[in-house]
Amino acid sequence: MATPLVDMRNISIAFGGVQAVDDVSLDLHAGEVVGLLGHNGAGKSTLIKCLSGAYRPDSGEIWIDGKKADIASPRDARHYNIETIYQTLALADNLDAPSNLFLGREITNAFGLVDDARMEAETRKIMSRLNPNFKKINEPVSALSGGQRQSVAIARAVYFNARILIMDEPTAALGVHESKMVADLIQELKAQGLGIFLISHDTREMMELCDRVAVMKNGQLVAAAKVEDVTEDDILSMIILGKKPDHLAA
């Protein structure tokens, strides 16, 4: 089998007394979508934040392309072409969509000054693909609806040629139509060879979009399995009971 794009080995992290992630190992291949499921507080966001550089794990290693990676900050993660859509969206509310989309990676002109016009043009281009109804380009994102904010966060993650994409509940605030567009986008990015970690509570959606699903409970990994090998009921019982179905245990 080919070397995985991402290989997280024995990741553990605790906050005070809470063991948020407990010895979790999980990998991701190019052109693959891996779904992360689990109850609220299971540790899904915390696990992927170790990959995105937001947290440093207490122990464990992350390997990228077969090489040990040192991800100490979000900036490091960007160097590995890891892009993240955070559950909290992580937008600066007082700035407009283009400023948020390019935050930390502004386009500058010959004098080193930020080129707002070009960033706006690029934003209009990508938004017309992601959400054609999006019109409030020049307003602070605090004036946007939850779904519009979410599309700004998605645009920011897919604009910069990510190789590894982390999506923490990207469709939580989206309408049916817009969720469908994100699903299409995921398929498209996957076909381009990106590896995608997707977090969602919608089991049916996960069965459709993912190649594999991984279930967490109380910080531990219950199991990871190909979607073909499990039913929706299997997944639900893993989430609720934290038990591997018998036919997988074999």
Binding site: P74, A92, D93, N94, L95, S99, G104, E106, V114
Partner: peptide, 17 residues
């Protein structure tokens, strides 16, 4: 840009590198 972004949402600024 970073001054205003940090003022608007310090966590988002940090996560943006």
């Amino acid at each position: 840009r970073y001054i205003f972004a940090t003022g608007g949402n310090p966590d988002a600024a940090e996560l943006s590198g």
